[in-house]
Amino acid sequence: MSNPLIAALDAEVADLRRNDGPLGDRLRRLAERVRELSPVYADAVDRFVMRLESVGAGANAPQVGDVMPDFMLPDHDGQMVTLERLIGSGPAVLVFHRGHWCPYCRLTMAGMAEIEARLAPHALAAISPERQQYTRALRASAGAGFPFLSDVGSGYALSLNLAVWVDDAMARLIASSGLDIPEYQGTAGWIMPIPAVFIVGTDGRVIARHIDPDYRRRMEQDAVLDMLGRVSSQPA
């Protein structure tokens, strides 16, 4: 990708990955950098996020206490993974993201990789609508050891009321940056998940969740660790 904006954001993500501050602070700095580089793009994102917030996007996704629907999705190597398997020995963390092309997602995935060892033995999995060649690339770039799953066509995200349609104006703006979302996803449409985190217990019920239509905000690493710590400390 030779687009100057993409190149500048790639450099910013690389620099922010060397920062050991809270993930939220790094994401805010990234958003500030986007606005510095392209106020037009940043304003378009603001309008897109406002549209999602106005319709309560993601509000009807599984709530705390709800049963999380099972899935069977291929990982980065093509091996099928189920939720039942992930929660077989303890609560699991599911991280929905938009894909390797999204700088906020790259930073978030690297952030999750930073705490992966501290999450053990709890299972952790990333889910996006991207094809395996892109999930493999992001997994390697993030330095992650956990599986990156492909939700082809956003079918699972749609079943959770977690997927949104990207309007034509936003799609054209993204494409003008040299990003080919349909190619990455292997579909003709412009459907993406709302980035989210679900912590699912061994009974298949949601213990905690973080869903925000503003993809520039994600669940903090410490919040994930704290929640799992509280669950693990509860008597069986």
Results as ranks from 00 to 15, higher is better:
Leu27Pro: 03
Leu27His: 04
Arg28Asn: 13
Arg28Phe: 12
Leu30Gly: 09
Ala31Tyr: 00
Ala31Trp: 00
Arg35Asp: 03
Ser38Asp: 15
Pro39His: 15
Tyr41Leu: 13
Tyr41Arg: 11
Tyr41Asn: 08
Ala42Ile: 11
Ala44Cys: 04
Val45Tyr: 03
Val45Ile: 08
Arg47Glu: 11
Phe48Gly: 03
Phe48Ile: 10
Val49Met: 15
Met50Ile: 06
Met50Arg: 10
Arg51Thr: 14
Leu52Phe: 14
Leu52Tyr: 15
Glu53Trp: 02
Ser54Glu: 15
Ser54Ile: 14
Val55His: 06
Ala57Leu: 13
Gly58Ala: 06
Asn60Arg: 13
Pro62Ala: 01
Val64Phe: 08
Gly65Leu: 05
Asp66Tyr: 06
Val67Leu: 12
Val67Ser: 14
Val67Ala: 09
Val67Tyr: 06
Pro69His: 08
Asp77Met: 15
Gly78Asp: 07
Gly78Tyr: 06
Gly78Leu: 09
Gln79Ile: 08
Met80Gly: 05
Val81Ala: 08
Thr82Glu: 02
Leu83Ile: 05
Arg85Met: 10
Leu86Thr: 05
Gly88Leu: 02
Pro91Arg: 11
Phe96Ser: 01
Trp101Asn: 00
Tyr104Pro: 02
Leu107Tyr: 09
Thr108Ala: 11
Thr108Pro: 02
Gly111Val: 03
Met112Phe: 10
Ala113His: 07
Ala113Met: 11
Glu114Thr: 10
Glu116Trp: 07
Ala117Met: 02
Ala117Gln: 08
Arg118Lys: 13
Arg118Ala: 09
Arg118Ile: 09
Leu119His: 12
Leu119Asn: 09
Ala120Thr: 10
Ala120Ile: 10
Ala125Ile: 03
Ala125Asp: 02
Ala126Tyr: 06
Ile127Gly: 06
Ile127Asp: 05
Ile127Thr: 05
Ser128Trp: 01
Ser128Tyr: 01
Gln132Arg: 14
Arg136Trp: 10
Arg136Pro: 03
Leu138His: 08
Ala142Gly: 00
